[in-house]
Nucleic acid binder design. Structure first.
Lengths: 189, 189
DNA sequence: TATGACATGTAACATGTTACATGATTCT
DNA sequence: AGAATCATGTAACATGTTACATGTCATA
């Protein structure tokens, strides 16, 4: 049981899903690929943390819809109250930004433009995610709300991080030009 | 040459440093450990991207102060203008937050308190980092400013991310209690 | 008196990424 | 006509983490 295993149990706690769905969904919060996820799902199933329903399909492999068992829920809770490790972040863009002042100015401007585009597209993407969650909330308005809670708050966070990132990027663009840049008046609030 | 290799060249572009210093410094932007960094430094040195100055010490291993060569600077620039991969983020906390609504309320509150503490301590840490950069800027006021640029803008970003994170965490705490929480009035600006 | 900072390095193990493998249907 | 989406899986390779190894000095 590594951290990704618990992450899959966490996603399955609100909704039954296939490995394919899980791969897409977990990437918002935890970078992974299907090659890592499928073997873990088999193992979780073997050990009784999750169980599967087969849905036959033609032209594609049969769907395996996984859902959490009682044992899985207990395990999820044990993990939830255990120590939480620090976030692992590995962002090539930041490594590039560190040395931006000793790079060719054209190359530097190109990188900042690229960064701005990325923030804008993330912003648009998460704004539509929020809309989708609100639509779902209207559909099953009685009990389903609490199952949307986690996804909703986390999407709000990444959305606001993208907003902040965009502002920050535009601030960097402004001060990049000024020789002997000014430390005094920076405020994003 | 993997991404971490380029990251080390990037850090060495502004200042000569030891592997020990690099290990501490790169962790703000790229999670790593000394066990991964020392072998890479040896390889970079063998291939002429960096060169070292030995400083003898007693009681500790001799210091190896690395600095970038011309070849290293060329390589850095080639990497700078190449495609930039997406950030890798793996945060156990977010995986836990996803399933927070189906966990024991006491455990949930404890996790949110822990998260708030973490944001506050990051905030304090990066605020003092900014102060340190400003002090350094006063010391070598003539030419050294551009070498501080990368570290400064990136520290500003993580600082503001921590501020945002704290606000977000307090918002989550507020709406966690409310049954059938409200989607309408959320704004961090 | 014990923990942490300093300073480097190797080895075993765990984890993650890329490529290979298959193949129908829908969109551009 | 070609790319993307759906849907699962394995194998080879690259990368990252933890533990082992050593030893002094300063701080709590």
């Amino acid at each position: 049981m590594n951290k990704l295993s618990y992450g899959l149990l966490s996603l399955l706690s609100t909704e039954a899903m296939t490995g394919y769905d899980l791969t897409n969904k977990i990437n918002r919060f935890w970078r992974s690929t299907h090659s890592a996820i499928y073997p873990i799902l088999s193992e979780l199933e073997e050990n009784g943390y999750i169980e599967l329903t087969l849905v036959e399909q033609s032209g594609k492999p049969d769907k395996k819809i996984y859902n959490l068992t009682g044992k899985g829920m207990d395990t999820l809770h044990d993990w939830f109250i255990s120590d939480t490790s620090d976030a692992v972040v590995r962002d090539e863009m930041t490594l590039k930004l560190y040395c931006i002042k000793c790079m060719n100015p054209d190359a530097a401007k190109k990188l900042l433009d690229e960064l701005e585009i990325r923030y804008k597209s993330r912003l648009a993407h998460y704004e539509s995610s929020i809309e989708n969650i609100k639509l779902k909330a209207q559909e099953n308005s009685e009990d389903g709300l609490s199952s949307l809670f986690g996804g909703y708050i986390l999407t709000q966070r990444v959305l606001n991080e993208a907003k902040l990132g965009l502002k920050w990027c535009q601030w960097v663009k402004k001060i990049y030009e000024t020789d002997g840049f000014d430390f005094t008046n920076i405020d994003f609030d």
